[in-house]
């Protein structure tokens, strides 16, 4: 029982959140909530690798891009694809696949790329691997921005069925929580966390660190790829620059603010950063106080987020969660 309290508590929290939003019933709120939940799937995915292995990744948004475009290829109407995405393989051009199949396949596509990439870069030392993931992000971005016949290049892909609302997103977040928790308490997860704490000691217990990292990298890319697909089915429109530096910064901030080393941190950090960003976005739009209109200058969002990140790193380096998992208060005595 106590073993499962963290995922149960987190899932309970998400369901309550979804319920509250349904009660309020505001369209704007539902939109914000859904977007946040999709990002939470992505952040949990990044956490699965970064949190357990201790190796930072700057490239996971590349997997999100891969997932988002993969689902677009599978679900766009054939007439549109045949005209706009002439370079797509015929299987994709002539067919459409249902949402669940497309989302799953998108996750698998990202996982496949991660396997290929991971075999090459998981052998590198921590910092070198992090830089290599960043290079990967840049490569995905420039390939997708320029491969017009397959991705539409810098023009948008439109017409992806928008089937993802708050409850579907809650469902996927719950799935991601269960998956990430199962991974972290598994044997592979334990060995990986051991190697994060002390590589030399893990190796002298015969732990194959490279293999453990690779497994986590692939599983993590799967979740992030699924997150990308959800994002496509939420907005209905894709552009390549949606999956680049800005989103990388936001998602990594979420992870750092919440605390890199716990699943609870990934969830809490996504909530906290979304709250900060939304409040600042509101203030940028401005408040009417009596006769005067007060508004923060544009760009306050990014500055506010940067400040929040700096404050957390200075005063609470292990994040809001302190690296701990959500738990019922322990009985004393």
């Amino acid at each position: 029982m106590s073993r499962f309290q963290t995922p149960l508590l987190l899932i309970f929290g998400m369901v309550v959140l979804g319920g509250l939003a349904s009660l309020i019933g505001s369209e704007q709120l539902n939109f914000t909530l859904t977007e946040m939940l999709i990002r939470m799937v992505v952040v949990i995915g990044i956490y699965l690798f970064v949190g357990n292995s201790g190796v930072m990744s700057f490239g996971h948004i590349g997997f999100m891009s891969i997932g988002a475009y993969a689902t677009a290829w599978m679900t766009l109407p054939p007439e549109w694809k045949q005209v706009m995405l002439t370079g797509l393989p015929v299987v994709f051009q002539d067919n459409t696949y249902p949402f669940p199949v497309a989302v799953l396949a998108s996750g698998l596509a990202a996982a496949g790329v991660a396997l290929f990439l991971g075999i090459a870069i998981m052998r590198l030392s921590g910092l070198a691997a992090s830089i290599a993931t960043f290079a990967f992000l840049a490569i995905v971005f420039s390939v997708y921005s320029n491969w017009e016949s397959v991705t539409g290049g810098t023009s948008s892909v439109i017409g992806i069925p928008t089937v993802v609302g708050p409850w579907i997103a809650v469902g996927f977040v719950c799935g991601a929580i269960v998956a990430a928790h199962a991974f972290q308490v598994s044997r592979v997860g334990l060995m990986l966390r051991a190697s994060r704490d002390d590589e030399v000691a893990a190796q002298s217990s015969a732990v194959e660190i490279v293999r453990m990292r690779l497994l986590a990298f692939v599983a993590s890319a799967f979740l992030v790829g699924v997150g990308g697909a959800l994002y496509a089915h939420f907005l209905g429109v894709l552009t390549t620059d949606a999956f680049y530096l800005a989103l990388s910064f936001v998602t990594l901030s979420m992870l750092v603010v919440g605390g890199l080393q716990s699943l609870t941190g990934a969830v809490v950090g996504t909530l906290a950063v979304t709250l900060i960003v939304e409040v600042l976005r509101g203030l940028e739009r401005g408040l009417d106080l009596g006769a005067s209109h007060i508004a923060l200058p544009r760009g306050s969002q990014e500055i506010g987020l940067g400040l929040a990140l700096a404050l957390v790193l200075i005063f609470r380096p292990s994040g809001l969660s302190g690296g701990k998992e959500a738990a019922w208060p322990r009985k004393r005595g």
């Binding site: 334990l190 060995m191 966390r193 051991a194 704490d197 030399v200 000691a201 893990a202 002298s204 015969a206």
Partner: peptide, 24 residues
């Protein structure tokens, strides 16, 4: 089996988890 200099424990893992790594 190497017992490295300087007490290389897995600091964030519990004592029992540390031992579980030994059984890998």
């Amino acid at each position: 089996s190497l017992v490295p200099e300087g007490r290389h424990v897995f600091a964030t893992l519990t004592v029992e988890e540390n031992l579980a790594v030994g059984t890998y």
